[in-house]
């Protein structure tokens, strides 16, 4: 099922921060949403989440830092039960086991506060909570910025591997075109509250049309390694 939304927009304090936007995200695709900070990426995400939730489509969002997803005063077990209750599902140890194995969290005690775990593990826990909802769309917000690169790369691979089996669509939101290009087949470029360009990754890298996309492509890589 392709996720399709029309006329997403947002206005704050009389200023349009998201111009009317139509999106269509094919099932199981990996899409990168790219733009500098302040270009409206987060606004688009939150508008999309609200719209999909209103239509009854399961969508999950993983913020860039675990601090934005977990209460430091509450145990991980509490967060897990709370997520189950919010979804209205009965405790399902088998499903929990599957998710924890998929994200390499098996064998850990959940009766600790989040900060007893490393940030990488916390982030994987947050992703497990997100996947508990069996979302049609999973949004990863700047998935690398709060983690060390080795851990971030491993986490992304685990997530991609898992959702390839479930047919979940993945939206990676980032300011870093290099990251999006490395992980997504399709790219959307945002600039000043508009999606100014969308194309397959290879096409956009080879022939950027809009000037924001051209500038992102020009600054894509730090360096090219010899083979």
């Amino acid at each position: 099922m392709t996720i399709h939304v029309d006329g997403l927009s947002a206005v704050r304090a009389g200023r349009t921060i998201l111009h009317p936007t139509n999106l269509s995200l094919p099932q199981g695709s990996r899409i990168g949403l790219v733009g500098p900070s302040g270009s409206g990426k987060s606004t688009l995400c939150y508008a999309l989440i609200d719209r999909l939730q209103a239509e009854g489509i399961a969508v999950a969002h993983v913020p860039q830092s675990p601090d934005e997803a977990l209460d430091p005063l509450r145990t991980l077990a509490f967060h897990w039960r709370q997520a189950e209750r919010a979804l209205g599902i009965a405790p399902d140890p088998a499903r929990k086991g599957d998710l924890f194995r998929a994200l390499r969290l098996q064998g850990q005690s959940l009766n600790v506060r989040p900060w007893a775990w490393s940030r990488g593990m916390q982030q994987r826990f947050v992703i497990a909570v997100a996947l508990l909802a069996q979302p049609a769309l999973l949004i990863l917000d700047e998935p690398t910025s709060a983690l060390d690169p080795v851990i971030a790369a491993a986490t992304l691979s685990l997530v991609e591997h898992h959702i390839a089996e479930t047919g979940t669509t993945l939206l990676i939101v980032t300011h870093d075109l290099g990251l999006a290009a490395a992980r997504a087949a399709h790219l959307m470029v945002m600039h000043e509250g508009r999606v100014v360009e969308q194309a397959a990754t290879a096409d956009l890298l080879a022939r950027p049309v809009s000037s924001p996309a051209q500038s992102l492509v020009a600054h894509r890589n730090w360096a090219v390694l010899p083979c």
Binding site: E68, Q82, A86, A133
Partner: peptide
């Protein structure tokens, strides 16, 4: 203003539970 509250709301945790289980202890 705790940073994790919006995420809880998006996860479907209701305002009552957010107030009593999270805001009150903080």
């Amino acid at each position: 203003g705790a940073p994790f509250l919006p995420a809880l709301a998006r996860r479907g945790v209701g305002p009552r539970e957010r107030a009593f289980s999270h805001v009150a202890p903080h």
